[in-house]
């Protein structure tokens, strides 16, 4: 009885949800000594940023893996996070920091996201048009793209004057403790928008994981749906990068945790599971490191290390198969 219950993805996702709620409660209440009102507000906005980032990274990674039929490729590995950093620098370069300072930040981020969606679709079509067949070559190309975008945005940053550089440097390094709470509202709106777009295509997701030919056979307008989902991925990558900066292996880690925990490839389970796994890693990790261990070790470092080890393990397993 217990065993059959345990096999149900619904039960497993429910347990994940309970763990995530416990992490959130811990994050809000542990080591509160003085002013509750202040702490709740301060931690609350940080918590919200972490929840949004976990959702954006979890959803975008699982979706990207579905449309690329891989458990190894992620938007971050293919250089999409750094592409947003580059877009950020480009927008500053073109419009100038002084000009942009007058704009509401939501307008600036909105413009960046729009540009990001366009460039991401272009990059996606370039990489995944079917000309690159080898997975290893694909990973190599992604890493190269990432390096190129990083160098270009460095170059751009050098051209900017110091005050503009200040605006752009916030999104250039991954950090889960110094999150950008200023852009919470615009991030939440963008994430909701991406989620609504996703609802339109939710029925196609499982069919897409069967492969292109079978999806077409079953009547899915494959090219259009895949580009639509890629646009959603681009929006979510932007949200995550705005909030916590570019990550490399975090998405890979939580997506694979989601597959492993749910034991299925059904998106109705893997999508929420990836978000919950992300929340447990980010919020729970923060509680563990900052409050319980009182460590100064950055969480981003720990998570990227774990994700990097997983990447190597998956790569080696893939080679052997």
């Amino acid at each position: 009885m217990v065993l059959t219950l345990w096999r149900q993805p619904a039960v497993r996702v429910l347990l994940l949800a309970i763990a995530a709620v416990l992490c959130v409660l811990g994050f809000m209440t542990i080591n509160v000594q003085t002013d509750w009102a202040f702490i709740l507000q301060h931690r609350g906005s940080r918590l919200l940023a972490l929840l949004l980032a976990a959702s954006a990274i979890g959803l975008s990674t699982v979706l990207f893996q579905t449309i690329t039929h891989s458990r190894l490729l992620t938007p971050a590995l293919m250089g999409f996070d750094v592409l947003f950093v580059l877009v950020n620098t480009l927008v500053l370069l073109i419009f100038g920091g002084a000009e942009l300072a007058g704009w509401p930040s939501s307008l600036r981020v909105g413009l960046q996201m729009l540009l990001m969606v366009g460039l991401a679709l272009l990059l996606f079509r370039l990489l995944f048009s079917g000309s690159v067949r080898s997975l290893h070559l694909m990973i190599l190309l992604g890493m190269l793209a990432g390096m190129l975008f990083r160098e270009l945005s460095e170059l751009g940053a050098r051209v900017l004057d110091p005050s503009e550089f200040g605006i752009s440097s916030g999104v250039r390094q991954a950090s889960f403790s110094r999150v950008n709470t200023e852009l919470l509202a615009v991030s939440a709106v963008a994430l909701t928008l991406g989620g609504l777009l996703l609802l339109r295509w939710r029925r196609y997701l499982d069919v897409l994981s069967l492969g292109r030919d079978i999806a077409v056979n079953l009547g899915v307008a494959h090219g259009r749906v895949v580009l639509g989902i890629m646009a959603v991925v681009a929006i979510m990558v932007s949200v995550a990068t705005v909030l916590v900066g570019p990550t490399l292996f975090f998405g890979l880690l939580i997506a694979n945790l989601a597959y492993w925990i749910t034991g299925t490839q059904r998106h109705r389970w893997t999508l929420p599971a990836s978000v919950l796994a992300g929340i447990i890693c980010l919020v729970g990790g923060q509680v563990l490191l900052e409050q319980l261990l009182a460590s100064t070790l950055p969480l981003a470092l720990v998570i990227e290390l774990a994700g990097g080890l997983l990447f190597i393990a998956l790569l080696l397993r893939g080679v052997r198969q």
Binding site: S209, L210, G211, D213, I214, Y259, T264, Q265, R266
Partner: peptide
């Protein structure tokens, strides 16, 4: 050639 690695 169809997908062989699906958990389904």
């Amino acid at each position: 050639d169809n997908q062989t690695s699906l958990r389904l």
